[in-house]
Amino acid sequence: MSRIGKKPVSVPQGVTATVDGQTVTAKGPKGELKFVVNEEVLVKMDDGQIAVEPRDQSKAARSKWGMSRTQIVNILNGVKEGFEKKLEINGVGYRAAMQGKNLQLALGFSHDVVYETPQGITIAVPKPTEITVSGIDKQQVGQVAAEIRKYRGPEPYKGKGVKYAEERIVRKVGKKK
């Protein structure tokens, strides 16, 4: 039984939400997002709250119940406040810079890596060793941050590479002479 799915989602102030069949649409100060709820889950809106419940007690319906509610919460928060992921770059000569709308990364390769910024995402480089990825779609923000991190993930000996700001790297001890 989903404990998350039981709670109704209240629509925050400044956000307009509509439920049309299985589609939940949210409009807010940052933009507009839509989420199509799975057919096995029933979604209803009454007096400023969105309720989600499974159509039957099958395992598939119950497993999609809590996830659907969480996706609705994410689109409501996204159009109101947006989401942000911070990345840090560690290593001698490793740095980032914006080149128009593209992110240019110097990560120790023979050439710089150029990452093209997708639509709906904003990438900022406040310092050469910090990257901030922001947008209204939580999944897309996380995906872009993961793609940037994938170019040179942190290694366990010196911690060189691109890592999330809150990530803790477990270090290994090197060989002794």
Score class of each variant (00 low, 15 high):
4 I>C: 12
5 G>L: 01
7 K>I: 12
11 V>S: 05
12 P>V: 07
12 P>F: 08
13 Q>K: 15
14 G>I: 09
17 A>G: 06
18 T>G: 04
23 T>Y: 05
26 A>R: 02
26 A>K: 02
28 G>P: 04
28 G>K: 03
31 G>E: 04
32 E>Q: 14
33 L>A: 02
33 L>D: 00
35 F>H: 14
36 V>M: 08
38 N>M: 12
38 N>H: 15
39 E>I: 08
41 V>S: 00
42 L>C: 10
44 K>G: 06
46 D>F: 11
48 G>Q: 08
49 Q>R: 10
50 I>F: 01
51 A>P: 02
52 V>S: 09
52 V>I: 14
54 P>S: 05
55 R>K: 15
55 R>S: 08
57 Q>N: 13
61 A>N: 08
63 S>W: 07
64 K>T: 07
67 M>E: 15
70 T>H: 11
71 Q>T: 12
77 N>V: 02
78 G>R: 00
79 V>C: 07
80 K>I: 06
81 E>N: 14
84 E>Y: 00
86 K>S: 03
86 K>E: 05
87 L>K: 00
88 E>F: 03
89 I>W: 01
90 N>P: 04
90 N>T: 14
93 G>L: 09
94 Y>I: 11
94 Y>W: 09
98 M>F: 11
98 M>G: 07
99 Q>F: 14
99 Q>P: 07
102 N>M: 11
103 L>Y: 02
103 L>P: 00
104 Q>L: 13
111 H>D: 13
113 V>C: 05
114 V>E: 12
115 Y>M: 06
120 G>I: 08
124 A>G: 05
125 V>M: 08
126 P>T: 01
129 T>C: 02
130 E>C: 04
130 E>F: 03
131 I>Y: 00
133 V>F: 00
136 I>M: 06
137 D>T: 05
137 D>V: 07
141 V>M: 02
144 V>M: 10
148 I>V: 11
149 R>A: 13
150 K>L: 12
150 K>Q: 12
152 R>Q: 13
153 G>Q: 13
157 Y>S: 09
159 G>Q: 07
159 G>Y: 09
161 G>R: 02
162 V>W: 01
165 A>F: 06
170 V>W: 11
173 V>K: 15
174 G>Q: 11
177 K>G: 14
